[in-house]
Design a protein around this nucleic acid. Structure first.
Length: 441
DNA sequence: TTAGGGTTAG
């Protein structure tokens, strides 16, 4: 770098660094590289004697710990900090612990937490909340509650973010009662995220009227619902086929000044498609387009499913081709799954198998759901041997069949009268730890 | 001046 121009100050450099660190970029890796290289340039320019401020290092370390490309770079950077004579603080360690949390490495996160406490640092509400959130995401809500209690006995007060993690955690594992109690007994005012988490919990459990009741309560508590809240409620009505009520909620949100987004429309379209009212879905699609909202992958996928459901796989296929050729949205595995399943259910198994071959040639990321759909299609047209070959190949690919896969294959054998094969597979399924009537999520 | 939380499709 040439020094012919006056140098920016250390403060200006740090502001730049913070700005870059906070950019939400698709190319995460590149951003982190820029941050580290900028930090190195700062050090070269200002010299080691003018030691960079601790918070500058903390910005860098936070970037590094969230980077998935270089898993240990944050610890390498910590070493660099120590060499420069900088003492890490609670911000530094919270970022490092959170780095493990981001990668779902709860045990490493907890291990580091214990070490940091042993070193005499006092974790604060952010440190605890990061761990609680990570435990909840890993469905270990009991452990999260334990940590929550420890936090309180350490004299660290939970804030709304802590409660939000726990309420969502309870909801995610179906403990709606615990979530409701926690919401009731919170020592800080809940916000829209807290209440919406429980509303969505009710919706996912099929209890849409409890969700609506909570919606009414939240307005009395002067917690203002937002687009997330309304999308959740609309989804709740759609899920149980109450489309009129879904529409009424949709109108209500507009009256309340809440602007519907692409998720709102896609949820409604999905509701109509599932109830075989694809034309009503198209009307919503047109309205959405008039408002300048562009359909995304999910919107198209919902339509493809809808058209297949009403026996028009040709239109579904057309939409699929349109999304590819117009580059308006990129089909993902789920789009392919819906198309394959739709074709199979409409007697177009051969076509589905061709698309599946194409997917394999292109080395696309196929899921166990894709395989299950194809196995089912093969069985349907009597190609039980091909289906079983594909089933067996899963193990060498490192894929695990789930209950649906097993059930599909067993049913295929049974339909052909291959009772011994079916029985053997049934036993293998139980060996793999599946109960015959287990549901898949 | 630095760290933590949410919705949609099989």
């Amino acid at each position: 770098m040439s020094h012919s121009h006056p140098l920016p100050s250390l403060g200006e450099f740090t502001r730049l660094l913070t700005a870059i660190a906070n950019i939400h970029d698709d190319e995460e890796g590149r951003k982190y590289d820029v941050v580290v290289s900028l930090f190195d340039q700062m050090r070269n320019l200002f010299g080691v004697s003018s030691s960079p401020l601790l918070y500058t290092c903390n910005i860098v370390i936070n970037c590094l710990s969230q980077s998935s490309r270089h898993p240990y770079s944050s610890f390498t950077f910590l070493g660099k900090m120590l060499k420069l004579g900088l003492e890490p603080d609670v911000f530094t360690f919270t970022s490092l612990i959170n780095g493990f949390c981001c990668k779902d490495r709860v045990d490493d996160a907890l291990g580091l937490f214990v070490k940091v406490v042993e070193m005499g640092f006092r974790p604060n509400v952010v440190t605890y909340t990061g761990l609680i959130h990570c435990l909840c995401k890993n469905r270990d809500v009991d452990h999260a509650v334990e940590l929550f209690k420890r936090m309180e006995s350490d004299g660290v007060r939970a804030n709304v973010v802590t409660y939000n993690s726990l309420v969502s955690g309870f909801c995610d594992c179906g403990r709606l009662g615990d979530a409701a109690l926690l919401l009731r007994d919170m020592r800080v005012k809940p916000n829209v995220i807290t209440v919406t988490a429980l509303i969505d919990g009710f919706v996912k459990a099929g209890k849409v009227f409890e969700a609506v009741e909570l919606y009414n309560v939240m307005r009395k508590m002067s917690v203002e619902p937002n687009v997330f809240t309304y999308n959740s409620l609309i989804n709740g009505f759609c899920m149980c086929g109450r489309l009129d009520e879904a529409l009424r909620m949709f109108y209500l949100m507009e009256i309340k000044g809440c602007v519907p987004n692409i998720v709102t429309y896609t949820t409604l379209i999905h509701g109509f498609c599932k109830s075989k009212r694809v034309e009503d879905g198209v009307r919503l699609f047109n309205e959405m387009s008039r408002r300048g909202l562009a359909a995304n992958t999910v919107t198209y996928t919902v339509f493809i499913q809808g058209y297949c459901l009403v026996g028009r796989p040709d239109v579904g296929e057309q939409m699929f081709k349109h999304m590819v050729s117009s580059h308006s949205a990129c089909p993902d595995v789920r789009t392919y799954n819906v198309l394959l399943d739709g074709l199979c259910c409409n007697g177009k198994v051969e076509k589905a198998l061709m698309i599946f071959e194409y997917m394999r040639k292109r080395e696309m990321d196929v899921s166990i759901v894709t395989y299950t759909i194809v196995i089912q299609g093969m069985c349907k047209v009597g190609k039980v041997e091909d289906a079983f070959d594909l089933f067996c190949s899963l193990f060498t690919k490192g894929m695990k069949p789930n209950v649906v896969t097993y059930t599909t294959m067993i049913t295929g054998f049974c339909r052909r009268g291959l009772i011994h094969e079916a029985d053997a597979l049934f036993r293998k399924m139980k060996e793999d730890g599946f109960l015959p009537n287990e549901r898949v999520s």
